[in-house]
Amino acid sequence: MATMTDTDTSQGRQTEPALREANRVVTQVIENVEEVIVGHHAEIEHVLTAMLGRGHVLLEDVPGVGKTMLARAIAASFEGTFKRVQFTPDLLPTDVTGVNVYNQQSETFEFQPGPIFGNVVLGDEINRAPPKTQSALLEAMEEGQVTVDGTTRTVPKPFTVIATQNTVEQNRTYDLPMAELDRFTKKIHLGYPDQVEEAEMLGRVVGRHPIEDLTSVTTLEEFQRARDTVADFDVEQPLRDYATRLARYTREHAQLGVSPRGSLALLRASQGRALLDGRDYVVPDDLRTEAASVLAHRVRPDSAEQTGRDVVRAALDSVPVE
């Protein structure tokens, strides 16, 4: 894979400036985030491909593996507004969206924007809030807008939600229904760092935490341009067919399979993946790299022993590439 890429870029005949620029932006963000986050290179890339594909990310794992830190580091790398919502059982929808407050001086109601109005919104422990509050966030994610007291307001662009949820203490949580999970482009498991990485991480953060010193490396405009560039990447017929075949496989081999929205998300994330690889066209390998994180959480397997990830892996193993 590496060799082929080298060959490609060395020839460089089709590499347009926009592609190079977008690639530079993303590479810089990744490098920046890696100042803070040790290991998890793949997960960082996954978050970025989701963001490039105009999607949102759900980070799920046990507490203390750096979910919030990853989200903050990414947010901090952009020169945009970063908002954070800590979801709790008593959090109200208006705590997320904002509320109309009566201004006694002007004798009018004024809209007090909630934390949803940011370019990168970190929703911590989203599964601890009741469904009503969750749905306020989800509406914004899907529609790019929120409705408060009948008035619809658009959230800024670019807009990315990075939510986290814990997999412990399941008894006091409100699990996201499948319909809402579907709205996250990806669900990413961070996992524990290996021994070397953990030691390295401890060394870095034992004193002053480097996140405090993290500065943005790209402007919102640059990132928005990168998104637009990626959106134009070629996704040829064979790939659309491949994505469809994968989705169909999960539908045939699970209780609930991947929706068309899921297939679309897969193609979009694959476009981001192509950019990371310096290409302006998608290849089957991009789909295969993205499939697990994009599709697994949309699948409800037939049996309890299976996970969505198993079904997706089976799909990748059984569906002919071309």
Binding site: D8, D280, Y281
Partner: peptide
């Protein structure tokens, strides 16, 4: 062989 694969990849997935 890799070179041929790369050319074919561009042809097939980029239509180029």
């Amino acid at each position: 062989a890799r070179r041929v694969a790369a050319i074919r990849e561009r042809a097939r997935y980029r239509g180029d």
